[in-house]
Write a protein that binds this DNA or RNA. Structure first.
Ligand SMILES: Nc1ncnc2c1ncn2[C@@H]1O[C@H](COP(=O)(O)OP(=O)(O)OP(=O)(O)O)[C@@H](O)[C@H]1O
Length: 777
DNA sequence: CAGCCACTTGTTTTT
DNA sequence: CAAGTGGCTG
């Protein structure tokens, strides 16, 4: 059995490559076989960029231009890396797939694990994910005497991430700091770096930043790697950031063979530091670069491609390209309007049924959305409709509390210096070790420059600050940890270690005690985690704990897509980048969602939103549904919505538009009147209210006229004072956040939501029903 | 120290 | 609406 499989591959190696080459069009073939030197392939969606890059690798190997170990390829996700390895094995023969194919983060990590000590990184370091970073930052914030409500860890983490991606040190940030907030950010950044060092941890950005520093500062190591990588290839080049660009330059510096593919119309990560300029100005970065264009689309049928092309043509800042297809026009796109998100979700269920009746499988249908929050209503409907589905990405498995708790145990076992993990688990399950005890323990450890575990093992240290009972409990806890740690170092397989932790901590009864109603399902998650660890153990042939934790830290959303035709997949547009599906249902095609309200303010933001819409459309092969609702819950309050402006940019000849025209039709999809508090008047769907709630706020700049707004609120007698008197540009104060300027007013009455830009704390969403917002007039 | 309640804020997008 | 926080009580 094994024989025959090996045979098939090895005897067909050369022909397999020829096959692959022959199936490419001329432009693709020319790119694949381009001579040495810098090469850029610019091409639209579905034109075969990834395929070209993959075939290029196979070609380099087969032609003897490089050995497998001499090729370095960057992909956007681990999933893409895995697929690429598979395809290369098919084309170039098994065992010839390059070792160095991975994401920027995974590649940086691989280098740092072997070479990190050269820049003072201690072996055995942990990787802190976003949640770990935020927890650490929260400690740093309060240790600097700052209020973590004002300097909220999420925002600070974002700022620090930007600093790092611009290769700015804390000192440089401090130098450049203009005002109070900037100065504090610099201090937080410095404190955070120090805290990471004490925890022997690197965050996501460090995986690239520190690798760049390593290669810049150490000539020997740089030369060794740069000489090794005869060919460097980068997929999705339009979404690389400046730091990644530097890394690419360093690693390709010896041989100068860089092969990059990308599409400027699909750049959707500028908020994470990605720069389109890396691609647009490629020829300046790499003089003498050869540039290839691919224009034939092999993915989508005519109407879909036409729609996408027309929409993206509205972006001004682009080079423009001429993407065409040989495929027939196919079905029209379909726009459908609904009263609210529940009706929209009910229709998604209908569409899935319809498609499966027409011969598609559920797995052929993918539901896309702009924000993760939109998935909730969809999930409810799918569950009610008994359709199997998978939410790909955030809030899935690895973000559940019970899973994170157990992973924190493993992290602590792997890295005794990890105080974030320690604080997560030392009192979970309850061990009568409260905040005071933990605080003193950490203080002691810091004072003696020991890890907390060492401090507990030392005689006389705990005694300085802790009561005898507390000492006993703390020591008992670390006895457990030490026991696990020695088992791990004796080579106990990860799944067994994990099971030992579950057993020793009586984790199941802890779940039961915490909340009996959900204990069963959380118990299943625990079992699933053990299974996943077992799968890891198998797949990696006994991989160790550190490797397991790395793998978990670096999973990207698309990696988690399950195989199989039986489940409908739901994901954000960002997650769907680079993937393709027969049927795409794009939900929430509304202004303020797509384009998102926070991005529509400036032209650059709007254009990126349009690119998102473009990415969504171009995922589809056969059919596209564009759904939108007139009303949607946000923060538990109803918000009105208008159809996305991007829908109007889709030419009429390729789309069928089913919009609600009369109030009666509102019941078409089984809408139940959702009366809650001040009712919503039935609306004429072709003529939405002339004045939207968030607009009257804008228009009535002088405070007085605010009361002229639509009299929707039932009890405005009591409400009027607090809820009627906010308008854009108004200066208000808040008991915690200080003074700020009203940026937006949405909704009315109980549904009112005020967005305020506070001078010191940044942008916050305030519900005046609760919050003490005082106008400063 | 744990459990309970009341209060208030958050939702872009992710490696 | 959900989740985290902070305050209070036993
Ligand atoms: N020459 C070709 N003949 C037939 N099919 C092709 C050819 N080139 C590419 N394809 C197919 O077209 C689809 C899109 O290819 P690929 O994913 O490589 O495009 P891409 O440019 O990377 O897309 P995107 O930019 O949207 O990620 C794939 O299904 C691929 O198999």
């Amino acid at each position: 059995m094994a024989w025959s499989r090996t045979d098939v591959h090895s005897t067909h190696t050369g022909e397999a490559l020829d096959d692959h080459l022959n199936r490419l069009n001329d432009a693709q073939q020319q790119s694949v076989t381009a001579p040495d030197g810098p090469v850029l392939v610019v091409a639209g969606a579905g034109s075969g960029k990834t395929r070209v890059l993959t075939t290029r690798v196979a070609w380099l190997l087969s032609e003897g231009h490089a050995m497998p170990g001499e090729i370095l390829a960057f992909t956007f996700t681990n999933r893409a890396a895995r697929e690429m390895k598979q395809r290369i094995a098919e084309a170039a023969g098994p065992g010839r797939e390059p070792f160095w194919i991975g994401t920027f983060h995974a590649t940086g990590l691989k280098i740092l694990r072997t070479e990190g000590e050269a820049i003072g990184i201690k072996p055995g370091f942990s990787i802190f994910d976003t949640d770990d970073s935020k927890r650490l930052l929260k400690e740093v914030t309060s240790s600097l005497g700052l209020d973590s409500k004002q300097f909220n860890p999420s925002a600070t983490r974002g700022a620090i991430s930007r600093f790092k991606n611009d290769d700015q040190t804390p000192e440089a940030v401090l130098q450049a700091a203009a005002g109070y907030v900037d100065k504090k950010y610099a201090e937080l950044y410095a404190g955070y770096e120090e805290a990471l060092r004490r925890n022997n941890a690197l965050d996501f950005d460090d995986l690239i930043l520190r690798t760049v520093h390593l290669l810049e500062q150490n000539d020997e190591i740089r030369e060794r790697y740069a000489r090794r990588f005869r060919h460097v290839l980068v997929d999705e080049f339009q979404d690389t950031n400046p730091l990644q660009m530097v890394l690419v330059k360093l690693l390709s510096s010896w041989h100068g063979n860089l092969f990059a593919v990308g599409d400027d119309d699909q750049s959707i990560y500028s908020w994470r530091g990605a720069r389109i300029e890396n691609m647009v100005d490629f020829e300046q970065f790499f003089p003498g670069a050869a540039v290839f264009r691919l224009e034939q689309n092999y993915r989508s049928c005519g109407n879909i491609l036409n729609a996408a092309n027309q929409v993206i043509a509205n972006n001004k800042r682009r080079k423009g390209k001429n993407l065409w297809t040989n495929d027939p026009a196919g079905d029209l796109l379909c726009e459908e309007e609904f009263v609210d998100e529940q009706d929209e979700a009910a229709r998604v269920v209908d569409i899935v049924r319809q498609e499966t009746a027409a011969g598609m499988s559920r797995g052929d249908v993918t539901v896309l959305y702009r924000t993760n929050a939109q998935s909730r209503a969809l999930e409810d409907a799918l569950r009610r409709g008994r359709l199997p589905y998978q939410i790909v990405g955030s809030l899935q498995f690895y973000e559940r509390k019970e899973v994170r708790d157990l992973l924190a145990y493993l992290k602590l076992v792997a890295n005794p210096a990890d105080t974030v993990a320690l604080q997560r688990v030392i009192n979970t399950p309850r061990r009568q070790i409260g905040d005071t005890t933990v605080g003193r323990l950490l203080d002691l450890a810091a004072r003696y420059e020991l890890t907390p575990g060492e401090a507990a093992a030392e005689t006389g240290v705990l005694e300085e600050e802790l009561a005898p009972a507390a000492q006993r409990r703390v020591r008992a806890f670390f006895d457990l940890v030490t026991r696990w740690r020695s088992r791990a170092s004796e080579g106990m397989p990860v799944p067994e270690l994990l099971q030992a932790i579950v057993d020793d901590t009586k984790f199941e009864s802890h779940l039961e005690q915490e909340d009996p109603t959900t204990a069963a399902s959380r118990g299943e998650n625990v079992a699933e985690l053990v299974n996943a660890a077992a799968a890891f153990h198998e797949a990696t042939d006994g991989g160790n704990l550190a490797q397991y934790l790395e793998q978990v830290a670096l999973v990207s959303d698309p990696d988690t897509i399950t195989d199989g035709q039986g489940t409908v997949r739901l994901m954000t547009i960002h997650t769907a980048k680079g993937l393709e599906f027969p049927v795409v249902i794009l939900t929430g095609c509304e202004d303020d969602i797509l384009p998102h309200i926070n991005s529509a303010e400036d032209e650059a933001g709007l254009e990126e939103e349009r690119r998102l819409f473009y990415v969504a459309l171009t995922r589809a092969q056969k059919r596209v549904y564009l759904l939108h609702a007139g009303r949607r819950r946000r923060f538990g309050t109803w918000q009105e919505a208008l159809p996305s402006r991007f829908l109007r940019e889709v030419p009429d000849e390729c789309i069928e538009r089913r919009t609600l025209t009369t109030p009666q039709e509102t019941s078409l999809w089984g809408h139940r009147p959702t009366g809650r508090g001040a009712g919503h008047r039935p609306r004429n769907r072709t003529a939405p209210p002339a004045v939207r709630p968030d607009q009257w706020g804008n228009r009535t700049a002088p405070a007085k006229t605010a009361a002229n707004g639509p009299a929707e609120s039932v009890d405005w007698q009591t409400d009027v004072d607090q809820s009627r008197s906010y308008y854009q540009g108004q200066v208000v104060t808040h008991s915690i956040f200080g003074s700020g300027v009203v940026a937006r007013v949405e909704g009315a009455g109980d549904d009112m939501l005020v967005t305020v830009d506070f001078t010191e704390s940044g942008r916050k969403h305030i519900n005046p029903r609760f919050a003490p917002l005082v106008p400063l007039d």
